[in-house]
Write a protein that binds this DNA or RNA. Structure first.
Lengths: 189, 189
DNA sequence: TAAACTTCTTGATTTTTGTCAAGAGCAATC
DNA sequence: GATTGCTCTTGACAAAAATCAAGAAGTTTA
């Protein structure tokens, strides 16, 4: 069973038969370093699963780039607003390294509902799960200092700090690169 | 048409027939000031629509109360995690004033799917919409100062600052009451 | 109505975080 | 293999925000 299938299995709990029908719609693709999966203002009409590599989601606020999220293997990448509502994308989604993705386009995605009767229900559950994760993220900004947020992320995923330019992690944590650098130094003692 | 029906109509775009079936499941209820709609650690097995009054959603972090959101008329209130996944509630949801609510319990809620064929799809769209709103909220913490967040909320809803204890708004904005007080003074000039 | 609370503001001070500038260390490139 | 960029760190300083303490103003309670 592929990583993608394991992931779908775990998250959506479908039967083996349904699973293989669903995963057949996802096509293996590569995305070269610095290339974009989705761009602000365009339409994001596909959903990707990260098999390998690292992908950054960011947006320009004035002339600053704000990194919303870094996806590594096992994550889905999509501009949800664009994909679900057929509106213009809000995020730039760019490969930080060469990536292997499994990608499904909107047309095929809509076919899943015909194969798996309760698909809309499973989607609802998945998005609700994502919602609660985002709630937690808001809470970290309401209740924690920059130092606490750094320590939390570092303890959650130390590897990230070797793989991703620190300036992006700083932005994702809501602090400047200089502050992140100092917190790293402080924590290393 | 009631406020609730208008709201469901706007957000879910169902037919008049479906609408009256759905809204019939919601029962008018009152929630007295300081009483709880949901409590941390219990099960939140109902969904409410705020017809009038103000409701606060908060959680204890250590001995601090962190206010996640303030709902006024036109909002739904629910501990989504608990309601959707039948897990223990994460939030305390408490009336700040006497409230009029329309409430539906989980059992009746599940009936809606039998009345409106594409209900799971509509739920998905609604939760996806909520997700994108939360994304924007995270972004405000990544890109804006306390002062900018205050000004944004004040411009969005001035009334809130007359109706809700400022300490709760400060918490929801991710700052101390003292800082909010000073920003108010500064902005008033 | 007085007393007890609660909420909000203000001042003084400390801590945290951001800004600006410089330089070190690497990797890419020509 | 020098040059150019890019990333990260560091220092000095400034700004933002938190903390602590006190008191004013308004509410609730007895």
């Amino acid at each position: 069973m592929s990583e993608l299938e394991k992931y779908i299995q775990t998250y959506f709990g479908v039967s083996n038969e349904e699973l293989s029908k669903i995963s057949a719609y996802f096509k293996p693709t590569t995305l070269k370093k610095n290339n974009y999966f989705s761009k602000e203002g365009r339409f994001c009409d596909k959903l990707g699963f990260v098999q390998s590599g690292i992908i950054r989601e960011y947006v320009f606020i004035g002339d600053r780039e704000i990194t919303k999220w870094i996806s590594t293997s096992g994550y889905f990448v999509v501009d949800l607003y664009s994909f679900v509502f057929q509106q213009r994308a809000r995020w730039n989604i760019q490969a930080l390294t060469d990536c292997e993705l499994y990608v499904i386009d909107q047309k095929d995605y809509q076919q899943i509902g015909k194969v798996v009767a309760r698909w809309a229900e499973l989607e609802k559950l998945f998005i609700a799960k994502c919602f609660t994760i985002l709630e937690d993220r808001v809470l970290t900004h309401l209740s924690m200092t920059a130092e606490e947020r750094y320590n939390q992320l570092f303890n959650f995923n130390k590897e990230l700090f070797n793989q991703v330019p620190l300036q992006y992690l700083a932005s994702m944590l809501g602090m400047t690169p200089e502050t992140l650098s100092r917190l790293r130094k402080k924590a290393a003692k």
